[in-house]
Amino acid sequence: MTVEEISVLSAAIAVSFGALGPGLGEGRAVAAALDAIARQPESAGTISRTLFVGLAMIETMAIYCLVVALLVLFANPFVK
């Protein structure tokens, strides 16, 4: 396998696994937030705002993986 082929493969693996963890985490976060809103509808505003911030934080993990993948694809230092 050439370096390019390995790079493509590793980028795919990085993105897929990078999407897996944050996906699970975001699911839990949304579930907890919905539970909290169902219990206390009056604080729905605060909860949803915090939820959005938290989701963006979690999503950042996936974004990191995407950046790494892009680096591997477009700015691979091992490709001559």
Binding site: A56, T60, I63, V67
Partner: peptide
Amino acid sequence: FSLIIRLFGNVMSGVF
């Protein structure tokens, strides 16, 4: 750096 990468990654990925 995480501040940089977070914003960059989100916006850039959208555009990409």
